[in-house]
């Protein structure tokens, strides 16, 4: 690995009262890769990801984006730097339309006086872009971009959330358990979507409990244990049982470097 990591963290620490969720943890994401983050429940995966995506402010340590030190005080700031997160809950408003959801918090206003004085939204343009983005990902044949998100199936919602991230995430996309709530078939579609996003050169952090999915997609696997990075493994060199053994502490990795 001669290239610079696109997103990295050094010595992150986050404490909640007496609990240390992140304990001097390091983290690296290389350009163009899918990095899976696995770990037992409570190992601190989510805290780590929140710390690099701005949802949580670490007590100590530094985060670097493309070699430059960054400090995110909110997910919105991280977003402005091109880091998009698809949360497990998807962060969508069920009663609003697909287009509304895709542009939530970054709506496009009309040009001229209608936009600057009357603050009128350019719905047509937003709908067009939303449709375009969904099509770009070869995602779906859309009948109605104004359909409320709650009328979509779980897989479709996930698809829209991923499309939203892919549409705006210029540097890094973080996916938190994207297949946890989905059936086997729907998961398959989301996995294809993830590979599709990577093929556009955007690196992805994938947090997942599903070992087959992790081993299928990931270029490297970051194993998290007791609040820190235990090791980074190449899925080609290890089996799923090995990975689970590392996660639970049943087995120690021979060489911590990867």
């Amino acid at each position: 690995m001669s290239t610079e990591p696109i997103l990295s963290a050094r010595n992150l620490v986050k404490r909640y009262g007496r609990v240390t969720a992140i304990d001097h943890c390091d983290f690296e994401l290389m350009p163009g890769e899918i990095l899976a983050v696995i770990g037992d429940n409570g190992a601190g995966k989510s805290s780590l990801i929140k710390a690099v995506s701005g949802a949580v402010i670490p007590d100590e340590g530094e985060v670097f984006l493309e070699g430059k030190r960054v400090r995110f005080n909110s997910p919105i700031e991280a977003r402005e730097h091109g880091i998009e997160t698809v949360y497990q809950t998807l962060a969508m408003s069920p009663a609003l339309s697909i287009a509304d959801n895709m542009f939530m918090g970054r709506e496009i206003r009309m040009e001229g006086i209608l936009g600057s004085v009357f603050r009128r939204l350019d719905k047509k343009k937003m709908e067009e872009i939303a449709r375009q983005k969904l099509n770009d990902l070869g995602l779906m044949t859309i009948q109605n971009i104004n359909q409320a998100v709650e009328t979509l199936s779980g897989g479709q919602r996930q698809g829209v959330a991923v499309a939203r991230a892919a549409a705006f995430g210029s540097k890094v996309i973080i996916l938190d358990e994207p297949t946890a709530a989905l059936g086997v078939k729907e998961s398959r579609k989301v996995l294809e979507l993830i590979l599709d996003v990577r093929s556009r050169g955007i690196p992805i952090i994938l947090i997942s409990h599903n070992m087959p999915h992790v081993f299928e997609l990931a270029d490297r696997i970051h194993v998290h244990r007791l609040g820190k990075r235990l090791c980074v493994i190449d899925p080609k060199d290890y089996t799923m049982s090995d990975a689970v053994a590392f996660m639970t502490g049943a087995k120690e990795p021979e060489a911590v470097a990867a």
């Binding site: 998807l90 408003s93 609003l96 918090g105 709506e107 939204l121 719905k123």
Partner: peptide, 26 residues
């Protein structure tokens, strides 16, 4: 305002699911 401005969309989004709206950048 509720229909055609982003403020209106945000009012709906906050009422629908405040946490989701916040994570989405509202």
């Amino acid at each position: 305002c509720l229909r055609s401005t982003s403020w209106g969309r945000h009012v709906y989004a906050v009422g629908d699911d405040a946490e989701a709206a916040e994570l989405a950048g509202v």
